[in-house]
Design a binder for these strands. Structure first.
Ligand SMILES: [Zn+2]
Ligand SMILES: [Zn+2]
Ligand SMILES: [Zn+2]
Ligand SMILES: [Zn+2]
Lengths: 151, 151
DNA sequence: CTTGACCTGTGTGTTACTCACAGCTTTATA
DNA sequence: TATAAAGCTGTGAGTAACACACAGGTCAAG
């Protein structure tokens, strides 16, 4: 039948993994009918439309929980747009914060790598585990813990 | 006694949460002695030094699994430096990739928000869940799925 | 001795999947 | 036709790095 698709058929069509499709079903985002003969999931037009929506929303930064909320609201006949705008604003800020944090870490990593370029390998002692890592904070002054392990 | 610290004392001293300290213990990164009287964890010099190392490594982008590996190697008397360099290179690439991906998403989000600025709220129909999200891909052409839900 | 604040260990929840696995179907081969 | 190999299915469990919940233990004040 071309009126309903199996998990892997649907997955292939939307270029996602079958496990991802199953995940959305288990999470309650999609609720396909079941084939009475073997219990297999059978996706029809409605389900495919929902999955399509899910993927679009995900690409815009919405979480699955967000998407669930939006769909629930829409199925109650209420306009989800106001919620969408609110959630989006929050996700936008979150994403900006995450990017900033990761960029900071990235800089730390680069600095360390450069510093390590010229440093020789060490042997761990009771005092030190790895000079590369431990030496970093002394120069970069990340941790101003007074109980710092050495010097 | 000042020779050993409890979970919360140690947490406060290193400015991390007590739960985080407990997490590291449960993960096997630190193995403090136990107070025979009440079973409480008792952190001594060695443990504190290890935790100090963990935090430094974490700030450089190492995962807890990485750190475990490095510490194990060091405790076997082998120099962990070569491993450290290898792992760091991998994490550096990963981080760069993550940042790039997040920035791409961020741009998508911004574009969508701007487009939505002037659009009115909608009412969900059988055809659509939310025009804001569904309308996006038609203009941005994210999903060139031929079975797109409308038009 | 009791009240209350604080602290403890442990069990469970979080995000968005991904993997493992036993079993059923379909296809290919002899 | 028998049978073996390949492929697909649903479900249970695992991942990273903690955060939270909660019953019970500890300690100072009254
Ligand atoms: Zn080293
Ligand atoms: Zn140090
Ligand atoms: Zn809408
Ligand atoms: Zn569409």
């Amino acid at each position: 039948m071309s009126t309903s698709l199996t998990v892997s058929q649907l997955a292939k069509q939307l270029e996602i993994s079958a496990d991802t499709v199953r995940h959305y079903v288990r999470s309650g985002l999609i609720s396909p009918e079941r084939d009475p003969e073997n219990g297999y999931k059978r996706f029809k037009g409605e389900d495919i439309k929902r999955l399509h929506f899910i993927l679009q929303a995900k690409s815009l930064g919405f979480s699955l929980a967000d998407i669930q909320t939006i769909m629930d609201q829409a199925s109650h006949g209420e306009s989800p747009c106001p919620q969408v705008r609110v959630i989006m604003e929050a996700r936008l800020k979150e994403t900006a914060a995450k990017i900033a944090a990761m960029q900071a870490t990235y800089k730390q990593m680069q600095d360390a790598m450069q510093r390590w370029q010229t440093q020789p390998d060490c042997t761990p002692t009771g005092e030190h585990i790895c000079h590369l890592i431990e030496g970093f904070s002394h120069q970069a002054d990340n941790f101003k813990q007074e109980g710092c392990c050495h010097e």
